[in-house]
Every structure is written in structure tokens, then in C-alpha cells.
Design a protein around this nucleic acid. Structure first.
Length: 892
RNA sequence: GGGAGAUUAGCUCAGCUGGUUCAGAGCACCUGCCUUACAAGCAGGGGGUCACAGGUUCGAACCCUGUAUCUCCCA
């Protein structure tokens, strides 16, 4: 069979993914084995795969595949999130394109459109994950708004309400005037902006009630809220304004008379040291207003336009009004100056609209007591954050946590199960019938038509915080954890969670809270936090910049295995990664290398007798290489396992990469490769061939989590396999019980000798085909690796001598000298120069060692093994120097 | 403004408990090779004042202090 010189990824990916599905290798059901569980961070149902998903899900797939091979019952639960704001915005935009206004639709009609859209386009991202090779148990696919999951959310609301943890109240919330909803603190992104600080003159009113000519000047970045001013505040210690006690101020534009109040809150240094107080439009002003019992005038509408209450500029957009008002005030001579300043402005994470602090009636969850276990168990290490530098951030946040605003003024989501009558009664109930029954106890005259359900839905995170629980058993909230189903009992708590640090608080912290609240136990043991994928200039990848490659294009170009390797080669945990396509190229090249190693092995002709009829013998070089590589494999496997245990993914991958490329391909295969005689490859003996196949299989297994497709492909090409004999379920290799470190060290010497000979070839322009003689100055007569040296350095002979050899180039490995006889082909001057340099270096080295050893404090304080090492260095250096001096003497 | 972290080769990063000539890896680079698995390759090689300034120590990339620059989080 002719096998292609390059690996064809597309075909293998298609074939094997389907094969894995058909044979249900991703499927997990509870059994005797220990479970290993990951729940996917559910991507937004409207999402398409981007580089962040690629990174995140590749890591999860690597973890789950390795766990599967280690014999765990590996279960990776996939699913999507309904993402209320983002999805609703998307659907609204789409309807608009079709000429449909959301405002013209009833709630039911809108939801019908939204569900249609979800059925049609939602979950594309899950199909894309399959291209990556994600080995999720697709039968378990969940959606946060499917019926039973939603019911659990309502159960949770009711449970918390009954526990007294949920309340409703008027609060200052972060209002998104575009999404027309409140958003949580965590959904506000503060960005630095260039703003104008406007200095406006406010007239002071006399005690008799008439206006004076006296003014005070107030600095504000938000002149459009002037109409909502209900006081002016100064610091009581500010002498500049002490005389204003008891006086009033006339608010420009609306000519409202408001008091001057005194409060420590005002910063004397900022602006003019005076503050206009607008309780409806700033959280701090709101607090001042509460304290000083001020009137609250809301001058903005939900959409961010000037409201009727303002009494001027009604209907104008807030930013247009800002400009206009500055212009008008300037014309009236009331503007002293306008300064450019930098300040932080909050933007909505979802719609990018400037957030407006706004008073409104919302539902809140008390966070102080419920969040306690989630804090304690991260601090005490019960839940591990990787890397652990995030513990501080987490702790800081959890210690300063605010009550969670859980209501959203949207339709797409779980509707709040609060019901009202026309008498101001409120009850919490799962159904209208229950609500009516409950309301009747408060209002005997209740008519069914008087019962209204709350219009708002719950924050998306209020459903996704249950994810690790409800994907297994959505009924557990109402049944209680003691009545959990078999799945939940078996899979919970999950093992690893892989996610972005951006949602540490949104999601991770809240899952921990929910876990302790309803399961009495952590939801996961380890949280691996990935970085943000940036381009090589360090810019975040984004649609608007157009600097993000399409992951599927990359897969087409480099193969899924290549892209997976490429992503993970440059992904330190918790640090951003500077992605560049060249990493994928490196990944593809590695896959190709593996492919060609396989081609070589597969092309070996196994024979019991040679072409001349003699019985095939394993050569000494082959024997040595096998002995060595068996050790090497075990040694590196231990290192790889260790990297995994510490979640050092890039390190585990790089160790694998070098084991395969350098140790196996460059050294082992070269050492055992049969010679060519008369242009014909010699056959290989069965023992060497079998050992090689075994090594290859072990390596394929170690590579499998990173490169699932090519390893499965080769696995099936190396021999006939039964249907279920697949690498995806093969057993992870085991280490040797003991390691012969002496053999490993000796082989390193062997490599060094070979490299030195090759170096001489390079320097002297000697063709690799020309055989050279090598003489070792040693008491010994033979090393176990001699034949490997002969083969790989292409020697005619390797002999031993006790005497110096003249007319030869020399090199040293450790403290042993080697000679390559050159006849007259030697330039003594060049040699002298080289040797002198080496002598100088070694003398310098010796000196530094001697300085250390002659330092009494060093000898007295350093650990014995450190001192012993220094003494060894001393003696090695001395013998090296002696040898070089002897060589120089010969040349002179 | 408060907090966390970073700064090591051209690039991306390791360097774990201070101790080997400890200054490392991969990529990139340079030189020579189309050597019968692989040019998506092989062989060999060069390259860093470990951000800066002090300090602790017999010994510092590593610990401490300060400075600079950058990133992130929070207000």
C-alpha cells in the first residue's frame, strides 16, 4: 500500500469522529469506575466558535481524553446558555430587519419568534466543537432554558425567597438604555473616556427669597441632569462656602430653588469643591439624598431621553441634550469654563451603551451569608484555582460582595414567579393557580383578572450558577439533595472546570455558592483559568478589529490536531496568549513528523533470515537503542504525568513533542533503522520491530489527548484491530518500576560523542557519507553504546588507545579525549587557537570554583552535596586542563 | 484612587525549595545538506548585564526595599 508523504487531516477527522460517535466512546453512564467529570462552560446559544472557545475546549478535551485513558469514567457534559440580554438583542435586531417592532408584539409572540430562532440557528457552536474533536457526551446536551432546567431556576427562586434571602426594592441600578434593562455590577465595563468638565454658575438666593447677583460655581460632567438637581452640597470644613449656611440656590434652566447642604462626602479639591446633587442619577447623590431627605426627580426616560419630569429639553437624547445645554448656558453667560478631563465611564457589557444609574424596582438576592462557604472553601484550598494568584482577587471580591440584582427587564429568560393583585399584595408561586390560592388568603375579594405576574425575567447567571447541578438532576432543588438521582450522586462534585478569568465572579463564584447552598458540597475541585487569546500585537481578538482568524478555517488549513497543538503550545494558565498562526503550522508539522515516523516503521520488512540466508540477528546498536528508549520513555512519561498533575499544559505538551521528535525520531529510529546495501533496504529482525511498534503505540497514546485524530488513524494502520480496539479508550502507558539513570546518563554521553564528530564534519566540510575513524583515549575497551556511535556518526571504526594520537583532530566529552585521525589534513595554527581558547575557558572556570572552595564561609555553610559537587568540578577541570596542555605541547 | 500580577534570547515562554558552566526550551535566525520516513525535513551553530538601583546571604534570575514600564481586577 502506498502511503502519502504528507498526512491528510481532513479525511481522518471525518472518519474517526463519526467512528467514535457510532461506537459511543463519548457516552458515559454511572458504573463501578471512579468518575471524572467536566461540565462545559455553556457558550451563548447564539454564539459562533471563536479562538477563546478553541483554547478553552481543547484544554477540556485534553483533560477528558487523558482521564478516559487513565480508566476513569469520563463524562464531559455539553450545552448552551440562553444568554438573555445578548440573545434578546439579537432576535430584536433580526425582527427589525423583517420590519417587525418588538414593541408591537405580545410577550408570547415575541417568545415564539425567539424560540424559532433558537431552534433554527442556536447551537451551531456545538456542531463546530465537533470539528475540533471535542469528546462530549452529546446525549447529555443541555440548554439553560429547557423546561426542566428552567423549572429548577424557579424552584431556586422560591426556595431563596422562603429562606428570606430574596427581596424587592427600589435601588439605584445600572441601567442599560439600549437593552432597556438593569444589569449587574459585573456587567458594567468601566472605560476611560475624554469628558468635559463644565463649570456652571448657580445663583444664590437671599434669605428674603429674591435672587442676588452672587453665584457659586459648580463643576459637573453631566450638565444634562441639571434639571434633576435638588440640592447643592459643599464640605462643612470648606471655608470658602461657610457663609452659605442656610441659604438656597436657584438651579439654572428650571429655576428651581434648592437648599445648600453640607456633607463630608464632597471632595474639596475636585472642581470647585461644590457638588450638584441629583439623587435620581448618581448612586452617591442618591445616598446623599436619602441622608438629607431630598426630593428625587428622574429627568431621564428608560431609553435615555429627557423625560417630562425635567420640564425642559423633553424628548431629547441625553448626549444631544448635554451639548445643547452647554451651548445654551454659555449663551446665557452661566458657563465659567469647560475643561477636558479623563474619567471612567461605565458601558454595558452586552450592548456597549453608556450605563445610566437609575432608580428602579428590582429583585435582589442577599449575598452576605449565602456566599460565605464559597469564600471559605477557596481560601482553604478545598476548591483550587489554577493559577493560585486568582485566590486573592477572588477573596477580595467575595469579601466585598454586594447584593445581587437578579431581575432583568426582558422577555427571554425565566420569568420571575412573583404575582401581584390590585391591592398591593405580592406572593411567590410556581403557577398562577397557586398564586391565586395564596393571594386569596390576603385578599378575599380577589378576582382572577386582578392577578398579574411580574413582567421581568431572571438574570442569566441566576440559571447558569446551577449548571453543575441541574445538568444531572434538575429536580434536585425541590426534591432535596438526599433524594438526588443516580447521575447527580455519581458525577457530582465535578472534577475540573476550565473557564476564563473574566467570569470568575459572574459564574465560578456563584456556582460555588449554589453548590454549597443546595448540595452542601463544592461543585468542582479545580478551576483552571485560561487567558485571553490576543493577536501577536497583544490586541484582544475581536470582530471589529478583524484580527481573529476563523477557527474552522484554521482547522481546514492545519488540521484539527495541528490547531490543537498550536493553541496549547503557547497557553500558560491564567496568562493571556499571543496567538499566531505559525503555532498551528508548527502543530501541523509535528503531525506530519509523526506521520512519517509511522511511514518509516510501516515500511520495515520483517524477516527471520537475511538476504544471504543467515539468521537475522538483532544488532548491538538496536539492542542498545531499545534498552535506552525504554528508559527514556518511562522517564519522560513521569515528567509528563507530573506536568498534568500541576495543570502545566504547555509543558506537558512540549515534553511530549520533544520525546517524540527528538528522542524517538532523531535518536531511536535512526539507531535501529536497517542499513541500505546496494540501494536496497535490509530487513529488520522481529524483536526490534516488535519493540519499535510497542514504543510507537505508547507514544501514540501519550499524544492522543493532544492529537486525537492522527493517533487514532495510525493506531488502526499499525495492525488489524477489533471494532472497539481504539486508542481513544486505550490504556494510558505505565512507567517502569525503576529507572536506570546510569544508562540514561551514559546515552547522553553517546549523543555528545556523535554530535562532536558531526561538528567536525561540518567544520571540515566532510560529507556525511564519508566514513571516519574515531579513537577514544581510555583504559576501557568498549562501551555498551559503541555501535550506536559507529552507526550514527558514520564511523569506519571506533578504537581505544592509552596514548595520545598525533595528526588528528580531537575533542573532549566529559573528561575523555577523542581523536579523529586526519593525516595531513590538519591546520596546526587553527588547532592551537581552538585549544588555547578552550584552555582559557577551563582555567577561568577552575578559578571560579577555587574561589568558592577557598571561601571558609562557603565550606562551613553550604550543604555537603553542594560542596561535593564543587570538588568534583575542581577535579574534572584539572584533568581537562592537563589534557589540553598536553595536546598543545604536541602541536608545538 | 485601591488591589493583584508581570518584566529572562528577535518572538512566545520555562526556570518549582536561593546552590551543577544555571542562564534553558520551542519557534525564528545563520551555515551545510534534496543523505531512500519526513525540505512541513536532516545535521551543525550563533544569540541574553535575567527591566533599573540598592540591600540580605558564603552564594541571588529566585528573598527584601525603592524606581520605571506594562497588563488585569475593583471603585
Amino acid at each position: 500500500m502506498e502511503i502519502s508523504k504528507t498526512y491528510n487531516s481532513a479525511q481522518a477527522e471525518e472518519t474517526w469522529y463519526q467512528y467514535w460517535l457510532d461506537n459511543k466512546f463519548f457516552k458515559s453512564t454511572p458504573d463501578q469506575r471512579e468518575p471524572y467529570t467536566i461540565v462545559i462552560p455553556p457558550p451563548n446559544v447564539t454564539g459562533v466558535l471563536h479562538m477563546g472557545h478553541m483554547l478553552n475546549n481543547t484544554i477540556q478535551d485534553v483533560l477528558i481524553r487523558r482521564a478516559r485513558m487513565l480508566g476513569y469514567n469520563a463524562c464531559w457534559v455539553p450545552g448552551t446558555d440562553h444568554a438573555s440580554i445578548a440573545t434578546e438583542a439579537k432576535v430584536v435586531a433580526l425582527l427589525k430587519e423583517q420590519g417587525i417592532n418588538k414593541a408591537d408584539l405580545t410577550r408570547e409572540d415575541f417568545l415564539k419568534h425567539a424560540w424559532n430562532w433558537k431552534e433554527k440557528y442556536g447551537g451551531i457552536i456545538l456542531e463546530q466543537l465537533k470539528k475540533l474533536g471535542a469528546s462530549c457526551d452529546w446525549d447529555r446536551t443541555r440548554f439553560t432554558m429547557q423546561e426542566d432546567m428552567s423549572e429548577a431556576v424557579i424552584d431556586v427562586f422560591i426556595d431563596l425567597y422562603n429562606k428570606g434571602q430574596i427581596y424587592r426594592g427600589v435601588r439605584m441600578v445600572n441601567w442599560d438604555p439600549e437593552g432597556l434593562t438593569a444589569v449587574s455590577d459585573e456587567e458594567v465595563i468601566h472605560k476611560e473616556a475624554q469628558s468635559k468638565l463644565v463649570y456652571v454658575k448657580y445663583k444664590i438666593e437671599t434669605s428674603t427669597g429674591s435672587a442676588t447677583d452672587e453665584y457659586i460655581t459648580i463643576a459637573t460632567t453631566r450638565p444634562e441632569t441639571i434639571m434633576g438637581d435638588t440640592a447643592v452640597c459643599v464640605n462643612p470644613t470648606d471655608e470658602r462656602y461657610a457663609h452659605l449656611k442656610g441659604k438656597s440656590i436657584i438651579v439654572p434652566v428650571v429655576n428651581r430653588v434648592v437648599p445648600i447642604i453640607f456633607d463630608e462626602y464632597v471632595d474639596k479639591e475636585f472642581g470647585t469643591g461644590t457638588l450638584k446633587v441629583t439623587p435620581a442619577h448618581d448612586i452617591n447623590d442618591f445616598n446623599l439624598g436619602q441622608k438629607h431627605k431630598l426630593q428625587t426627580i428622574d429627568v431621564l426616560t428608560q431609553a435615555g431621553k429627557i423625560s417630562e419630569a425635567a420640564g425642559a429639553y423633553v424628548g431629547m437624547d441625553r448626549f444631544a441634550c448635554r451639548k445643547k445645554i452647554i451651548k445654551d448656558l454659555t449663551e446665557q453667560g452661566l458657563v465659567v469654563k469647560v475643561e477636558d478631563i479623563k474619567n471612567k465611564v461605565g458601558y454595558s457589557e452586552r450592548t456597549n451603551a453608556v450605563i445610566e444609574p437609575r432608580l428602579s424596582m428590582q429583585w435582589f438576592l442577599k449575598m452576605d451569608t449565602i456566599s460565605k462557604p464559597a469564600l471559605d472553601n477557596v481560601v482553604n484550598g478545598e476548591i483550587k484555582l489554577i493559577p493560585d494568584k486568582f485566590i486573592n482577587t477572588y477573596k477580595h471580591w467575595m469579601e466585598n460582595v454586594h447584593d445581587w440584582c437578579i431581575s432583568r427587564q426582558l422577555w427571554w429568560g425565566q420569568r420571575i414567579p412573583a404575582w401581584y393583585d390590585n391591592q398591593g399584595n405580592t406572593v411567590i408561586a410556581k403557577t398562577k393557580e397557586e398564586a391565586i390560592d395564596l393571594l386569596k388568603t390576603k385578599n378575599s375579594a380577589l378576582k382572577t383578572d386582578d392577578v398579574r405576574q411580574d413582567e421581568d425575567v431572571l438574570d442569566t447567571w441566576f440559571s447558569s450558577w446551577l449548571w453543575p447541578i441541574t445538568v444531572f438532576d434538575p429536580a434536585v432543588i425541590r426534591n432535596g439533595k438526599d433524594n438526588a438521582n443516580a447521575d447527580l450522586n455519581y458525577y457530582y462534585p465535578t472534577n475540573d472546570l476550565v473557564t476564563a478569568p473574566e467570569i470568575l465572579f459572574f459564574w465560578v463564584a456563584r456556582m460555588a455558592i449554589a453548590g454549597y447552598e443546595w448540595m452542601g458540597e463544592k461543585p468542582f475541585s479545580n478551576v483552571y483559568l485560561t487567558g485571553i487569546v490576543r493577536d501577536k500585537l497583544g490586541r484582544k481578538m475581536s470582530k471589529s478589529l478583524g484580527n481573529s482568524p476563523d477557527p474552522l478555517d484554521l482547522i481546514t488549513k492545519y488540521g484539527a490536531d495541528g490547531v490543537r497543538v498550536g493553541m496549547l503550545l503557547c497557553s500558560p494558565a491564567g496568562n493571556d496568549l499571543m496567538f499566531d498562526e505559525s503555532y498551528c503550522e508548527q502543530g501541523r508539522n509535528f503531525a506530519n513528523k509523526v506521520w512519517n515516523a509511522f511511514r518509516l516503521i510501516q515500511g520495515f520488512e520483517v524477516a527471520t533470515v537475511t538476504s544471504s540466508g543467515v539468521e537475522m540477528q538483532q544488532s548491538s546498536a538496536q539492542k542498545t537503542a531499545i534498552t535506552w528508549f525504554e528508559q527514556k520513555l518511562s522517564e519522560q512519561l513521569e515528567i509528563i504525568n507530573d506536568h498534568y498533575s500541576k495543570y502545566r499544559m504547555s509543558d506537558a505538551l512540549m515534553t511530549t513533542y520533544k520525546l517524540v521528535w527528538d528522542d524517538f525520531c532523531a535518536w531511536y529510529l535512526e539507531a535501529i533503522k536497517p542499513d541500505f546495501i546496494d540501494g536496497k533496504a535490509q530487513p529488520i529482525d522481529k524483536a526490534t520491530f516488535d519493540a519499535t511498534i510497542n514504543f510507537l503505540e505508547s507514544l501514540l497514546k501519550i499524544m492522543h489527548p493532544w492529537m486525537p485524530f492522527i493517533t487514532e488513524e495510525i493506531w488502526h494502520l499499525t495492525k488489524e484491530r477489533s471494532q472497539k480496539d481504539c486508542i481513544i479508550v486505550a490504556e494510558w502507558p505505565k512507567q517502569l518500576p525503576t529507572l536506570e539513570s546510569k544508562q540514561l546518563a551514559e546515552f547522553e554521553v553517546c549523543k555528545e560523542v556523535i554530535a562532536s564528530v558531526r561538528n567536525i564534519r561540518q567544520q571540515k566540510q566532510i560529507s556525511p557519507k564519508e566514513k571516519l575513524a574515531l579513537i577514544e583515549k581510555s583504559e576501557a575497551q568498549h562501551s555498551y553504546f559503541d555501535d550506536v556511535v559507529i552507526k550514527l556518526a558514520n564511523l569506519s571504526s571506533l578504537t581505544y588507545t592509552k596514548d595520545k594520537v598525533e595528526g588528528a583532530l580531537s575533542f573532549m566529552v566529559k573528561s575523555t579525549e577523542f581523536y579523529v585521525p586526519m593525516g595531513s589534513n590538519i591546520n596546526p595554527e587553527e588547532e592551537k587557537e581552538r585549544l588555547s581558547k578552550e584552555l582559557e575557558y577551563n582555567q577561568g572556570f577552575l578559578k571560579s570554583v577555587l574561589v568558592k572552595l577557598s571561601n571558609e564561609k562557603f565550606v562551613a555553610n553550604a550543604k555537603p552535596e553542594v560542596i561535593a559537587a564543587e570538588r568534583k568540578k575542581e577535579s574534572d577541570a584539572l584533568s581537562k586542563i592537563k589534557a589540553i596542555e598536553e595536546q598543545l605541547a604536541v602541536l608545538n
